[in-house]
Amino acid sequence: MSSIAENFIKDGKKIIAIGRNYEAHIKELGSASNDEPWFFLKPTTSYLRNGGTILIPKGVTTHHEIELGVVIGKEGKDIPRDKWEEYVAGYALGIDMTARNFQQYVKAKSLPWTTSKGFDTFCPISEFVPKEKIKNPNNVVIWIKVNGEDRQRTNTSEMIYDVPELVRHCSSIMTLQEGDLILTGTPVGAVGLICHGDKISTGLETTEGELLATWEGDAANRVGGYAFTQKS
């Protein structure tokens, strides 16, 4: 096993985040369906280890998006669909935090919205799970609770594009490198608000209920740094 993959939080080079990969989430946000997987990039500086605090920038409305993460184990490009597993080292559970009001503001102006996804602490991430522990990543359960209340819970079988297709598609556009993470998209419930003082818990489980990974932490208003002010 590659030490880079096992230590992807420290050594990985990029986070590829898939958008609109669950039909219910597409309908929830009133978005158009996609004809192929599409993605954006998050910086690895947004990683937040288990037990950390999500920092909410001033003026930002922050939403959670729970997702299964795929950790790349060796470099590859133009990976055939039937070879995908050779390039995967394991998995992780991630939260794609989103500055929703900022995202909506810049999207309305047809501007890039990397800022809304790229703040420090905006990718809480679990421990690494070797692929041997997950025989089929397209049939596991992911969930998130805020202050003990269920917010999102789904089986990854509901993804529009499965893991083999995501590996194939992403590698056809850019080289996948050891330690890279593909976040596979979020299910319905992603409009859930995270506020100062909230307690967040997450889980990645088998269909039999075996807990494979978790992330637990809290949220707090950030002191200093960027502040978003709505402009005309």
Rank of each mutant, 00 (worst) to 15 (best):
W143L: 12
W215A: 09
E158H: 10
A219S: 13
D162G: 03
N138W: 07
G179C: 05
G189N: 07
I144W: 07
G203S: 10
G203V: 00
D150S: 09
E208G: 14
G185Q: 03
V146A: 11
T206S: 15
E158Q: 12
I182V: 07
R222T: 05
E165H: 04
E216I: 09
T184F: 07
V140L: 10
L166D: 01
T206D: 12
V223Q: 13
L181N: 07
S157N: 14
A220F: 05
S201K: 10
K145Q: 15
A213P: 03
I144A: 10
S201T: 10
N138A: 11
H196C: 09
M159C: 07
G197N: 11
G197E: 13
S157A: 13
T184S: 11
T214L: 05
W143M: 12
T186K: 00
M174K: 00
G203D: 15
C195D: 08
I200L: 12
S171E: 07
T206Q: 12
I160P: 04
I194G: 12
Q152T: 08
R153P: 05
L212Q: 13
I200V: 15
G203W: 08
W143H: 15
V140T: 15
T206F: 13
L193I: 09
L166I: 06
V167K: 01
V146F: 10
H196E: 13
I173P: 06
D180M: 05
C170W: 01
I144E: 00
C170T: 10
R153Q: 14
C195F: 05
V188M: 08
I142W: 10
G225H: 07
N147E: 12
G197V: 00
Y161N: 04
N139M: 08
I194M: 14
L176I: 02
G217N: 05
T156M: 12
T207P: 07
G179N: 05
M159W: 04
R222Y: 05
P164T: 06
G192K: 02
E178P: 00
T156H: 11
S172V: 01
G197M: 03
E210V: 12
A213G: 08
K199T: 00
N221I: 02
I194K: 13
T202L: 12
A190K: 00
V191C: 01
A213F: 10
T184P: 06
V223N: 10
G192V: 09
E210D: 13
V223I: 14
E165I: 02
